[in-house]
Design a binder for these strands. Structure first.
Length: 373
DNA sequence: CGTTTTTGACCAGCGC
DNA sequence: GCGCTGGTCAAAAACG
């Protein structure tokens, strides 16, 4: 097979449009940060909760203070006063639960048991701002899945999964007498329980580069065609041993200048480029960890201006792309979103963000993206 | 030579 | 049950 090892940068946008059909469905919560502001509206729908943050008139991002000073924690502590910032929306107190609640990796156990039909419905729709409209010469997908020629052999043994702090046992249950190691591997997982995922944070930013450097080291482990989009979606995983944080990067088919990055999981280690100094309450990782720990901030972020300079873009994204909080309550995650958005805004990091929106569970494909654009 | 990216294949879930 | 899609694996290639 002729390998076209060409572009190494994430800019390589292969034309691999997916077919059609409905599919997928994450089982987690996802938060999309929309620029210009965000409002907060909670909606408890049947079977799920949908929180939407959008269109909140944000005052021009104030100049960054000298570092985050007391860190995000301070902001959090001022939950009372902070609520006011949410454009009059009575920012629910839980809005700060996330940050006031330490979520040590050990204790963390979020979970949106999609296996429980009653609660989760498991049919959570992740509304990506991708509308079926990309008229960009999207080649009629060819890569898709037409390559199912049995190739024999790649027994995969995975172990990453939750990584929140639990280990997978490699013991097979011998349920199926298949000799395909891959099958048994899968079997064991499936049989026991569905893999649960952690909440995800999705941020939308304008950027020329797909993969933004956030201080952590990532290894790309996959790329898939995004349906209705000429741009592929890349999957990254934190390279640190034991850390299973994942990041997904894709470009909006609507506005190709917008990059949607989804962060999943929590780092079990400090940022490799910024050795942590003090143990914060949120040391368990997660978005709180990010915001609470000024050491995670790259020094240059101060220089961010409203222009889309890749470098600065990356820096600013360093904040947004940190791990998601490990909480098991939708509302809590929502608070995380709000707080995060608030933080970003206050630090002028939200400037480039296009949208800020959180999607709880069981969300119908709303037109949120459209109202935003 | 070690690490990261590329990329085809495989699998689980879900919709039809 | 079949087909589609998202997510992941892993061998090979590309990089540094």
């Amino acid at each position: 097979m002729a390998r076209s090892g060409g572009e190494r940068q994430a800019n390589s946008a292969f034309n691999m449009a997916g077919g059609s059909g409905g599919g997928g469905g994450g089982e987690l919560e996802e938060i999309l940060m929309h620029g210009s502001g965000f409002s907060f509206s909670g909606t408890a729908g049947g079977g799920g909760i949908y929180y939407d943050m959008q269109q909140m008139m944000l005052p021009p991002p104030p100049p960054l203070q000298s570092g985050f000073g007391g860190g995000f924690m301070e902001l959090l502590d001022a939950s009372g006063g902070y609520g006011a910032d949410f454009g009059g929306y009575s920012a629910p107190s839980f809005l700060f639960d996330l940050f006031q609640t330490p979520f040590p990796a050990a204790t963390v156990q979020l979970d949106l048991p999609m296996s429980s039909p009653a609660a989760g419905e498991s049919s959570e729709v992740v509304n990506n701002p991708t509308t079926p409209n990309s008229s960009i010469s999207s080649s009629s997908n060819e890569g898709g899945n037409s390559k199912k020629s049995s190739k024999d052999g790649k027994n995969r043994l995975k172990e990453d999964d939750e990584d929140g702090g639990e280990e997978e046992e490699e013991q097979d249950q011998e349920k199926n007498t298949n000799n395909s190691s891959k099958k048994q591997l899968k079997a064991k997982k499936t049989k026991g329980q569905k893999r649960q995922r952690e909440p995800r944070f999705a941020f939308m930013t304008k950027s020329e580069v797909d993969h933004l450097d956030d201080g952590y080291r990532w290894r790309k482990y996959g790329q898939k065609a995004v349906k209705n989009s000429p741009y592929p979606r890349s999957y990254y995983r934190c390279t640190s041993a034991g850390c299973g944080v994942k990041k997904r990067v894709e470009r909006s088919s609507d506005d190709t200048s917008i990059v949607v990055t989804t962060y999943e999981g929590q780092h079990t280690h400090p940022s490799p480029i910024t050795p942590r100094s003090g143990g914060s309450l949120l040391s368990g990782g997660g978005i709180g960890h990010l915001f609470a720990d000024p050491s995670n901030i790259l020094p240059s972020y101060h220089h961010y201006n409203q222009h889309h300079h890749h470098h600065q873009q990356q820096l600013q994204n360093a904040y947004m792309y940190n791990s998601a909080p490990s909480l098991n309550v939708t509302t809590t995650t929502t608070s995380a979103t709000s707080a995060a958005a608030s933080f970003l805004r206050d630090n002028g990091l939200l400037q480039d963000m296009v949208t800020c929106q959180m999607i709880g569970k069981v969300v119908e494909p709303k037109e949120e993206e459209e109202q935003r654009f």
